[in-house]
């Protein structure tokens, strides 16, 4: 009986980890994806919501929000605002090419048994360290890392800002995310810790889901190169999500890691 309860608790823990990425969707939405001219601005919203792309749950925090310029130089967001349902900030595009706007981070989950009862705690690494749970015998620690991104292009698309870091789950453009057109095949490649993410399950959903009954999910599985191919029929703003189990290193130890990836992109009219 105890074993069964423990297993159930374990299953619940996994669901708890997966939960936020599934039920509540994290997204970053720029006012415009494709721009022309010498210098432009975009205003950007970030939220965690049930509907795409309607802020109705909690804001996406700006603490880890980073803007990467076409030359690959990253800088934190300045002058943002966080409200009840969404965060908002402006980005000045003063270089031609593709800009990446993204938020990345990790939370940790510890589970152990105490007096015969399963216990668990979720928080930042600092939280768990403060509780003495890191490195404590009998305590299993897992990591849930996330990457939430969008891409904006001034002029012609470029790829330097999209260079993978080699950590976690990342998108590598085959078709550039600002160069996806309705009714035309597109290809995205995914890497996990820098290696092709083979057999990865990727879901794509169109925005404006408040106005339809069907979720309209496009479900894909990556091939041996980590690539998915898809053809979307309608122009619009889309949300892509994926997650996969892997490992991470914590104080020289390998721990279980769940890697999530989310991107917002626009499908243009051909």
């Amino acid at each position: 009986m105890k074993a069964v309860r423990y297993l159930l608790a374990g299953a619940a823990a996994i669901v708890a980890l997966a939960g936020p990425a599934q039920a509540h969707r994290m997204w970053i939405l720029p006012s415009t994806f494709t721009l022309s001219g010498e210098e432009q601005w975009v205003t950007v919203d970030g939220a965690v919501s049930n509907d795409l792309f309607f802020p109705n749950h909690v804001p996406l925090r700006l603490d880890n929000m980073v803007v990467t310029a076409p030359d690959g130089v990253s800088s934190p967001v300045e002058g943002g605002w966080t409200g009840k349902f969404r965060s908002a900030f402006d980005v000045k595009l003063d270089k031609q090419g593709t800009w990446k706007i993204g938020e990345a981070g990790a939370s940790y989950f510890a589970r152990w048994e105490e007096d015969g009862e399963p216990r668990r705690k979720r928080g930042s690494l600092a939280d768990l360290e403060a509780d003495g749970l890191i490195g404590k015998p009998g305590v299993e620690v897992m990591q849930a890392s996330r990457r939430v991104e969008t891409f904006v292009t001034l002029g012609a698309p470029s790829v330097d800002a999209l260079a993978p870091t080699g950590q976690g789950l990342e998108l590598v453009p085959v078709t550039h995310p600002n160069d996806v057109y309705a009714e035309e095949p597109a290809f995205f490649r995914f890497v996990l810790d820098g290696e092709p993410a083979v057999g990865l399950e990727v879901k794509i959903s169109k925005g404006q889901d408040r106005y339809r009954d069907d979720q309209g999910l496009v479900e894909l599985v990556s091939d041996e190169n980590g690539e998915v191919s898809f053809t979307l029929e309608e122009p619009g703003r889309y949300w892509l999500s994926s997650s996969v189990d892997g490992t991470a290193e914590l104080n020289g130890m390998q721990i279980k890691a769940m890697n999530g990836y989310v991107a917002t992109f626009e499908v243009l009219a051909p």
Partner: peptide, 20 residues
């Protein structure tokens, strides 16, 4: 503002040529 802001609205031309 600058007139070049709306060049992209000629979206087919922008895709095939303008942006380059």
């Amino acid at each position: 503002g600058k007139g070049e802001t709306w060049l992209k609205d000629m979206r087919q031309w922008w895709r095939r040529s303008g942006r380059n």
